[in-house]
Design a protein around this nucleic acid. Sequence first.
DNA 1: ACAGGCGTTTAAGTCTTTCCTAAGCCGCCT
DNA 2: AGGCGGCTTAGGAAAGACTTAAACGCCTGT
Lengths: 221, 221
Amino acid sequence: MHILLVEDDAQLGSAIQRALERLSYTVSWLRDGRSALNAMRDRTADLVLLDLGLPGRDGIEVLIEARRAHVGTPVLVMTARDGLSSRVDGLDAGADDYLTKPFHVEELAARIRSLTRRMRGLSVNRIEVGVLSLDVGTSEVSFRGEAVDLTRREFALLQALMENAGRLVRRESLENSLYGLDHIVGNNALEVLVHSLRRKLSFETIRNVRGFGYMIPQDPK
Amino acid sequence: MHILLVEDDAQLGSAIQRALERLSYTVSWLRDGRSALNAMRDRTADLVLLDLGLPGRDGIEVLIEARRAHVGTPVLVMTARDGLSSRVDGLDAGADDYLTKPFHVEELAARIRSLTRRMRGLSVNRIEVGVLSLDVGTSEVSFRGEAVDLTRREFALLQALMENAGRLVRRESLENSLYGLDHIVGNNALEVLVHSLRRKLSFETIRNVRGFGYMIPQDPK
DNA sequence: ACAGGCGTTTAAGTCTTTCCTAAGCCGCCT
DNA sequence: AGGCGGCTTAGGAAAGACTTAAACGCCTGT
């Protein structure tokens, strides 16, 4: 965990640096806005601890400039001013959190933990099987790199097969997941569906096992 | 944007709810920890606004329990106590930010914006998609360079679509972010809304994908 | 407090696409 | 050869989306 500390006050800067290092973070301490901006553009830090009360170029300008350059690194802003507006400005400029001076080290630590926890929150609703890719969230499907337009039923069928790629999926199991328990549905609806899906992908992609069901191989081509 | 408000005080609760609704957020207001925990487990909300001073089961327990269940929804904690430790506790329990009562509505709004920005991994309040531009802070929308007047619901719909520009947004997901938990709403309310939004923009801007939902292309013209 | 206006939802009719049924065909297996 | 299971095609029924109109409810201004 590499933290970029931007603070012009020598005493406070070294105190924070030591405190964070004791918590086994790696700290790079910069004293002015110019070098801070350069460092942020390198994107080597995992988190930036930015003092808004920098001399010369204001801390908030550094922040705005960095965000304009699409630097997405989380920024935790420290402000001595206690007016409401400066805090709101900081957040609106693209800060992810702020801390009002003076603050306790434990509070700083808690916020850093909270921020880093947030960072690695990503969803995995994409199923990939060989050249096939299906996104459960956005309902998008691609085959051999190209987007494929599927209907709802086709999508549901493909999903059921991809979730069990390489394994045979029984006919009843498919019918059940497509039509629910009340599968009073005609007996060849599934076959019609398989056919239309095959036409949109390729005919080899979905294999039939006579008398049992269907499957997609581990590595469809 | 669907916000889960957990607050037992009737007066404060309804004040916050109305303030947020005026900002085009959808608010589901729950009064106790038990139902809050259930709602969080559903993962239908985009953000949780949690009062730590709940009667009976403490708010912090709700939070800990939810995080234990791997609910990753951002949580903004409200606390009446002003001791440092309770705030640190809240952050360590998995809150993403906190607000000390009493607070100004604008500060709440700024923090919500900051938190949702972080969720999207972006750093600005303005979402730009081709000739479409939407400002989450000021609620202003422009299309082809001209300002467009949208109602609350239209704005919320457009925001949900623009945040996912180029990707398909599922119908249920839209209904959820527009109407919240109590979406006992008639089944074609969304379609009527889409229609009125299309009329204010253009009919090509919002595309329908039958059976799934709607989307705005990367480069609407 | 009341009326009017606006925004929102419901309702109903129309249009479009999807899905199921049905029927004939093919090929494998007994 | 015959039967069973799967494949394919084409229509028609059902589902979903669009549009318009009207009712409802919430605010606002008088």
